[in-house]
Nucleic acid binder design. Structure first.
Lengths: 225, 225
DNA sequence: GCCAAAGTTGACTAGTTGGTCAAGTCAAAC
DNA sequence: GTTTGACTTGACCAACTAGTCAACTTTGGC
């Protein structure tokens, strides 16, 4: 409730934290649905239950608020990175990674939409993330996939394009959820349907790269090429 | 050149057609890059090389212009439908369809972005397309895929989720082209790279659904389930 | 050469919106 | 009970932008 006031000495920043959280939550929704330009600070303030002037007390400009939203999203994004690295077996690693990315699409659809919006609009705010963190992350995983190929564990596919397929498909369930709902009789996918979708994605990708369904270590066979 | 004037009787609408085309081309680019709200009619007019007032002579409102852009995009979209139906063999049909969708992503990336923007923003303008044309198109193709499964030509995957994977992956090359470029040393994919990406997508999807690489008619085996 | 219809355009307006500001409120510390 | 610093908020403004308009030009047909 914004109606309370400060305990600056006792619990410094507790009101601040509470209000910032409410604003950020509202901002993520509004930015996702209307884009940066389409969103208004008045909308965000209303959804957060505070006057517009109060929003500007916590976030001096619309752009600063937007940056914070994007920043939070990117950190959630990176959390899915871990799941890729927990195993050196392609079946296990990719199963985990795809499931994790699908779960993020389910749990944070707004964040995914904001991200998609950014990329479509040529990343005016996140270009540095793309060139540094995302770039490094991708390079490392491409190397891992290449090792799997060299070890004969998966078919010789292009690692980048494999990652793009995984990103595209998993994020599609967040970014295009409105289209999916419309094609699903106007109702969002149920939990059961979503689990089925996850299984399908994992299954098609794993079979698609010639990874065995069971995580078994096969003798290393060098692939042609 | 907008500097010419009318031949209303001789070639009725030729200036009109020329200017409308220039405006629509500019509008597609600007709407793709900035979204509906972020785009301004002044930007579009400038890119089309005409004064803003002239733009409003041809398209009374920004929304009317946007609708026309979206309408054109959807028609290009539907053209890829044909490629799905030209064969009843899954390998041939899906190879054709995926390649066609990839080619559209390459040739009309702006259109794809406008479409993605619309869906992310809950389709304020195209909801009727989703509920009618796209819905019908999807239902028909789902039935086709189901027949392939029943005939044992492909593995028993969920047809909807297979289509989503194909849509997501192929459109990713348009919608996320900026991210792809950034990860590709800041340069757009070359023609060779793009062809490789196409081959990878086709290969992974076909293998992923257990379709044989060579279009061969196998004896119809009923799948379990 | 004159007319009508199509096309062109600079200047204007009304509405929207990000951001400011001054006048407050509140509660703990002293 | 007064001070201090955090927080709140209605009213306001400057910038931007979709759309209008009236005066103008161009062109082909007669």
């Amino acid at each position: 409730m914004p109606r309370q006031a400060a305990q600056p000495k006792q619990e410094p920043g507790s009101i601040r934290r509470e209000n910032e959280t409410a604003i950020l939550r509202a901002a993520e929704e509004v930015f996702a649905e209307y884009g940066f330009k389409g969103a208004t600070t008045a909308m965000i303030a209303e959804r957060a239950g505070i006057p517009k002037a109060n929003l500007h007390y916590y976030f001096p400009t619309k752009l600063a608020l937007y940056r914070k939203v994007v920043d939070d999203i990117f950190n959630i994004w990176l959390q899915s990175a871990n799941s890729f690295d927990e195993s050196d077996d392609p079946v296990e690693a990719l199963t985990r990674y795809i499931n994790e990315k699908m779960d993020i699409s389910r749990a944070h659809p707004m964040g995914s939409k904001v991200w998609a919006n950014e990329i479509i609009h040529k990343a005016p705010v996140i270009q540095d993330y793309l060139e540094t963190t995302l770039r490094d992350w991708t390079d490392t995983r491409v190397a891992v996939i290449r090792r799997w190929i060299d070890a004969g564990k998966i078919a010789p596919v292009n690692p980048e394009y494999l990652l793009y397929m995984i990103w595209a498909t998993t994020q599609h369930y967040a970014d295009f959820s409105h289209q999916i709902s419309t094609l699903n009789d106007g109702k969002p996918l149920s939990d059961d349907q979503f689990e089925e979708a996850k299984r399908n994605v994992v299954e098609i990708v794993l079979r698609g790269i010639g990874a065995t369904a069971q995580p078994a270590s096969r003798p290393s066979i060098r692939s042609l090429a």
